[in-house]
């Protein structure tokens, strides 16, 4: 009790997520045309390690703690912290690349803990994933929801900062993408 979300909250998230997807689709062409800064070098679609570093950052990907000797603030060093899913970045990805990056990140998550930058990228990629989904995509997002459920089951504190993000992921997969057997029930 206290860990799983109410039906009302879930319905609100589905509604909000639907609006976000509509907005992304509406403005995709605009953001796709924007130039990126020179430091934003996106990996090739089949570069799995490159995408993990790009999205999650070298620190998390390599389990490196920020050292006191860093001259650049970790919060501003996207190479170390991971690039956020800016619209100008994610709008440039093809559907096949979106699916591939989802697979890379979910694969990473199978062996690692849930971190904030992972949540942001998963949300952004799911927001850009066009429906109807391919069977492979259905399988992938179901894997994500199951992994989120497993991590959530190990949480000991309702105030754990991961809880709300895990609930959000499960809700989006189960309610928005209609994998109803995975939905949290009241």
């Amino acid at each position: 009790q206290g860990f799983s979300p109410s039906l009302r909250w879930q319905q609100q998230q589905v509604s909000n997520f639907s609006e976000v997807r509509q907005s992304v689709a509406k403005h995709r062409q605009h953001w796709r045309a924007q130039f990126l800064d020179d430091n934003v070098v996106m990996p090739k679609p089949d570069d799995e390690d490159g995408w993990k570093r790009f999205c999650l950052g070298e620190n998390v990907n390599l389990d490196i703690s920020p050292s006191e000797g860093d001259t650049v603030s970790p919060g501003l060093d996207y190479v170390k912290m991971g690039f956020p899913p800016f619209l100008s970045i994610i709008s440039k990805l093809s559907q096949s690349t979106i699916s591939a990056v989802l697979e890379y990140l979910i694969s990473w998550f199978e062996e690692r803990d849930f971190v904030p930058q992972l949540g942001r990228w998963l949300y952004a990629l799911l927001a850009c994933l066009e429906k109807p989904l391919l069977p492979e995509a259905h399988s992938l997002i179901r894997q994500l929801a199951r992994r989120c459920s497993a991590v959530r089951a190990d949480l000991e504190d309702k105030d754990d900062e991961r809880l709300s993000a895990l609930n959000l992921m499960i809700c989006i997969v189960a309610r928005y993408f209609e994998q109803n057997d995975l939905a949290d029930k009241e």
């Binding site: 979300p5 109410s6 909250w9 609100q12 998230q13 909000n16 997520f17 976000v20 907005s23 992304v24 403005h27 605009h30 953001w31 924007q34 956020p84 899913p85 800016f86 619209l87 100008s88 994610i90 949540g119 942001r120 949300y123 952004a124 927001a127 809880l163 709300s164 993000a165 609930n167 959000l168």
Partner: peptide, 30 residues
């Protein structure tokens, strides 16, 4: 009006990030 809010959406490169953060916070508030 609606036109201004649409323009602000266009110019906000961080819209997806904000939407995610807002969703996460909403559960804590609930």
């Amino acid at each position: 009006g609606a036109g201004q809010s649409e323009d602000s959406d266009i110019w906000d490169d961080t819209a997806l990030i904000k939407a995610y953060d807002k969703a996460v916070v909403s559960f804590k508030n609930a």
